[in-house]
Write a protein that binds this DNA or RNA. Structure first.
Length: 479
RNA sequence: GUGGGAGUAGCUCAGCUGGUAGAGCGUCGGACUGUGGCUCCGAAUGUCGCGGGUUCAAUCCCCGUCUCCCACCCCA
């Protein structure tokens, strides 16, 4: 109260989403839902079931499956120790340690055990395949009729520098076919499924690129050959590629450096060095794609970056994405499940970058809007269908009942929580883009005849309570 | 991790060779106590991203830092 007491209150810190993460808001989320709805519908028609996975898994799982030398594992994972809680009284710390199988005699030993109690290192998953494989093994899915077809949708985390179509928390739509044979028909059908899905969404300008990168019989030989060839021209390569000659020669094929293109064109191609089994397999995949009427282009430079891929790999690019233009990547990974301690199991799968897919859809919508002025990505029904404008206590009771019944019938209803003059109420209704205003005042309560106004035309009519639902229902289905 | 660009109101942006900020849109209120869109009037919201330096004086100049955007690397 005393003047001058106006102390400078420090404003609380303004928080912001951490780098590379973002909030998705309406109306954009409606588009996300539409995309995900299409996933559920289309994938189900191919016999896939949804699996929901933890976002955390042991670091070791990713290191083993993706490969410790990959960028993803070596520098992009969000990893931390699951801490043993040292705030606990020593008595409980000892108990906890024993529960974890660490034999500990007295308090004095606690300190020396130290990090050993921090039992495992956890990682925010950078991709889904490893976790799906872990689940396949852990839940003994080899006992199920093979192959097991699973898909999952959710956030992944990689600590990269954000740019267009790349976030540190990003979303993938992931599908895997585990077990059974390595019949090319499986790869082809998997690709068919993505293409069907993208078509369902109306995404235009998608391109499918395929390649075979051999298996453990022929790939190492090819890699050596490639390395030898690259060494001969090493001085003509940029620093990145020079490094890759030794670390991962396949990656050189992927280079975008202008001056290297000519050299790359002349390098030996893996298609010429596949073993018989891989070549036959690849030929058959292509034949199977053709059988399904799927257009593809072969791209000998398509080398997936994750260690586990063998044989067929593929990538789908889309428009409007900047330089990160792949919306989907996938391939076969026959050795992975065994590597993770499971039975020898054939497997293949893909991941769609949902953020990029959405981005591409939005860009497409933008250009269409410019062209025709009509096309909308999220052509959802309006957020508010009926705005209930009421005045007076008695009318409020009626309004509540009306809102309840309309909602039960599936209409989206906005019921203002405080009394408003009708002018203001209609203004609100208008701003919210409501289709109808239901006007309830003294007159309506007395007569039992409610007033319904169609905002777009200004027409309005009187309805008894029962007639109203009927009228609105007809209107809705008639449109 | 490297390079380039950018940060001023909720949004889009102006702000001259340094003199502590404006517009449009949006939001809220009123003109308008039973009828919206149009119009008019009014209001709120900024530590000019943050920290330091130069200066009598910094949104403006310098350095650092953070974030965003784009690209490289790599990947979806």
């Amino acid at each position: 109260m005393s003047e001058g007491a106006a102390k400078k209150e420090e404003k609380p810190r303004k928080f912001q989403a951490i780098r590379g993460t973002r909030d998705l808001l309406p109306p954009e989320t409606a588009l996300w839902n539409r995309v995900e709805q299409a996933v559920h519908e289309v994938f189900a028609t191919f016999g896939f079931g949804e699996i929901r996975l933890p976002i955390l898994d042991p670091t070791e799982l990713f290191a083993r499956s993706i490969g410790v030398d990959t960028d993803v594992v070596s520098k992009e994972m969000f990893t931390f120790w699951d801490p043993f809680d040292q705030r606990l009284p020593p008595k409980y710390q000892i108990e906890e340690a024993r529960a974890r199988g660490i034999n500990i005699q007295n308090e004095g030993e606690l300190a020396t055990i130290g990090l050993a109690l921090s039992f495992q290192q956890l990682t925010l998953r950078p991709e889904a395949t490893a976790s799906v494989c872990r689940a396949y093994i852990e839940r003994n899915m080899q006992q199920l009729p093979q192959p097991v077809k699973l898909y999952t949708i959710g956030p992944m985390f990689r600590r990269e520098r954000p740019q267009k179509g790349r976030y540190r928390q990003f979303y993938q739509i992931d599908a895997e076919v585990l077990g059974g044979s390595d019949a090319p028909g499986i790869d082809a059908e998997l690709i068919e499924m993505v293409m069907t899905f993208l078509e369902r969404l109306g995404l235009e300008g998608v391109q499918l690129h395929i390649n075979s990168i051999g298996d453990k019989n022929c790939r190492p030989k090819y890699v050596e050959l490639l390395r030898e060839e690259l060494r001969k021209v090493k001085d003509k390569l940029g620093p990145d590629s020079q490094r890759r000659v030794e670390t991962n020669p396949l990656r050189v094929l992927d280079s975008k450096v202008e001056g290297e293109q000519e050299i790359i064109e002349k390098l030996p191609r893996i298609s010429q060095h596949l073993c018989d089994a891989c070549r036959e397999n690849y030929d058959e995949v292509k034949r199977q794609l053709a059988l399904r009427g799927i257009v593809y282009s072969q791209n000998f430079r398509l080398v997936r970056g994750l260690d586990y891929y063998v044989r067929t790999t593929f990538e789908i690019t889309a428009k409007g994405l900047g330089s990160q233009n792949a919306v989907c990547g996938g391939g076969r990974y026959d050795g992975l499940i065994e590597l993770l301690g499971g039975p020898p199991t054939r497997a293949t799968g893909f991941a769609i970058g949902e953020d990029r897919l959405i981005l591409s859809l939005q860009e497409q919508a933008k250009s269409k809007e410019v062209a025709s002025g009509e096309w909308r990505v999220a052509s959802e029904k309006p957020r508010v269908e009926v705005y209930v404008a009421w005045m007076g206590e008695k009318a409020y009771a009626t309004a509540i009942r009306a809102a309840k019944n309309l909602r039960a019938a599936g209409f989206s209803v906005e019921l203002p929580p405080v009394e408003q003059k009708f002018g203001k109420a209609l203004g609100q209704a208008d701003k919210l883009g409501a289709r109808y205003a239901l006007i309830l005042g003294d007159n309506e309560v007395e007569s039992g005849e409610w007033t319904l106004k169609t905002l777009a035309t200004g027409e309005q009519g009187k309805f008894a309570e029962a007639q109203l639902l009927e009228f609105l229902g007809k209107k809705r289905s008639g449109e």
